[in-house]
Design a protein around this nucleic acid. Structure first.
Length: 428
RNA sequence: GGAGAGGUAUCGAAGUGGUCAUAACGAGGCGGUCUUGAAAACCGUUUGCCUUCACGGGCACAUGGGUUCGAAUCCCAUCCUCUCCGCCA
């Protein structure tokens, strides 16, 4: 969410930003919100004057009552009653107008970073850098669920009966590998100075609307029936939410946290659950990293964050590349975003395994996360990035570490988490 | 889940319808006096938001409503904390 004052003073920047994001349909909202804001402030001003007046008179009444001059007090009371109707009217107007302003402000996108490439949709995202050789072996790489089945590592039929499409049972060595990756990723981030955290897996609606747009909320979040609680779609939600309504001391920044959580997603909308296997699912686990920092440091942290993910995947011999989200593909709250993609030797292309985002002060403004600095208070900047999200990550892992004989290499870094094994041998 | 108590500034805490709301009192923090230095003592200072070029004005006593000329104070709902009981990994 942008600062209303900024929109008022820079309507042209806001409009150009909408054009850059190919959201022309929202252009009229800019003038509309400026107009509504002006009326809202005028109503507030008039109401404040009436309230000021009422406060003064009420004090007089108090003084008269104290002196026992009841009749005089009764006389003055009438003056207040005369204004009360207009005040009630103005108060209703204030509420109505400021709600309208907020509703529009919630759908006006954040100003994108000047470095973001202009493009309409994900087809225009831009590859930044490749890391590692995207090899294609001379034997055939099976579909990931087929690899898992050779290890008796997955039971989608049972999951379908128990919970439906989009769920899975991981079994045996594959399940252990899943947990090993999470544990390794956790320690990897702790070694890089991040503080480990296990957050709430459900959050209130005010936190939900603070960390994401309405569109995302509708497409992603599961609501708990009869309660004001939602299952988190990522621990970013509870981790950024951790700082709701706080004023942080400047010297306590940056906050660098790495969190574990299961993630729940409806995956409603364009994609549906069309991909087979564990690529797109309703429930997965994820190790996440988040940063709350000073505005001038957020670009630096952005680069550090995605680099962490690249390094983690490279330490497991998985080739990756970074892909920059173009303006049209960038979610409304984001200033800049990179996807980290892993190489799939089966598909001979890269696919998304992580997403790194700089939200600027958008989440901080919605959640009121402020910093107490030398020159006054300001909103913090927030960033988040995937460390690793199995089981999707396991797809890349299995495909890249598969041998011709059907065995799977365990990279050295994972062996301590896999009982010292250097190789998984298939059951069949 | 049941019963009770409570939620006021950095912390403890007073205030139970109007010169008690920036908010008493105590502690802590910061600045100063004194001191070779420290302690003690003494003096001063110490919430946030909205609006305004400014002066100023408004709002906030968990949150949201209500009663009233006027609400921290009375009423209703919700949230949270503590104690006891129940249940439970």
């Amino acid at each position: 969410m942008l600062d209303m004052k900024f929109v008022r003073e820079n309507p042209d920047i806001v409009k150009q930003n909408l054009k850059n994001k190919f959201q022309e349909e929202k252009l009229p909202l800019v003038d509309e919100v400026i107009e509504l804001d002006a009326r809202s402030r005028a109503a507030k001003q008039e109401a404040d004057d009436l309230r000021s007046n009422r406060n003064k008179i009420s004090k007089q009444i108090g003084a008269l009552m104290a002196q026992g001059k009841k009749e005089e007090a009764e006389e003055i009371k009438k003056q207040v009653t005369a204004n009360s109707e207009r005040l009630a009217e103005l108060e209703a107007l204030e509420t109505e107008l400021s709600e309208k302003v907020t509703n529009i402000m919630m759908v006006i996108p954040n100003i994108i970073d000047p470095s973001v490439p202009i493009g309409r949709d994900d087809s225009e995202n831009v590859e930044v850098t490749k890391y590692g050789e995207p090899n294609v072996p001379d034997f055939e790489i099976p579909y990931h669920t087929d690899i898992m089945e050779r290890f008796d590592g997955i039971d989608l039929d049972a999951a379908g009966r128990v919970a439906g499409n989009g769920f899975y049972y991981l079994m045996g060595d594959i399940a252990r590998l899943h947990s090993a990756v999470i544990a390794y990723a956790r320690d990897f981030m702790i070694d890089r100075g991040f503080t480990y955290c296990v957050p709430p897996f459900m959050i209130r609606s005010n936190v939900v609307t603070g960390v994401m747009s309405f569109a995302e909320m509708d497409a992603m979040m599961y609501k708990i029936e009869g309660e004001d609680l939602y299952l988190i779609g990522t621990s970013e939600h509870s981790m950024i939410g951790k700082f709701i309504n706080t004023i942080l001391e400047e010297d306590s920044l940056p906050k660098t946290l790495t969190s574990y959580s299961p993630c729940f997603r409806k995956e409603k909308g364009a994609h549906g659950i069309e991909e087979r296997g564990v690529y797109r699912i309703h429930q997965f686990e994820k190790q996440e990293m988040i940063v709350v920092c000073k505005p001038e440091e957020s670009p630096m942290w952005f680069d550090k964050l995605w680099q962490n993910t690249v390094d983690l995947f490279r330490s497991m011999d998985i080739p990756v590349r970074t892909l920059e989200c173009c303006s049209g593909d960038l979610a409304d709250l984001k200033v800049k975003s990179f996807d980290v993609e892993a190489w799939s030797p089966r598909q001979k292309k890269y696919f998304e395994v992580g997403s790194c985002s700089n939200l600027g002060d958008a989440q901080a403004r919605r959640l009121k996360i402020r910093v107490n600095g030398e020159n006054g208070k300001y909103f913090a900047h927030t960033l988040n990035n995937t460390v690793v999200a199995p089981p999707r990550m396991l797809i890349a892992f299995l495909e890249n570490n598969l041998n011709a004989d059907g065995s799977v290499n365990i990279p050295e870094v994972l062996r301590p988490y896999m009982g010292g094994k250097d190789k998984l041998i298939p059951e069949r």
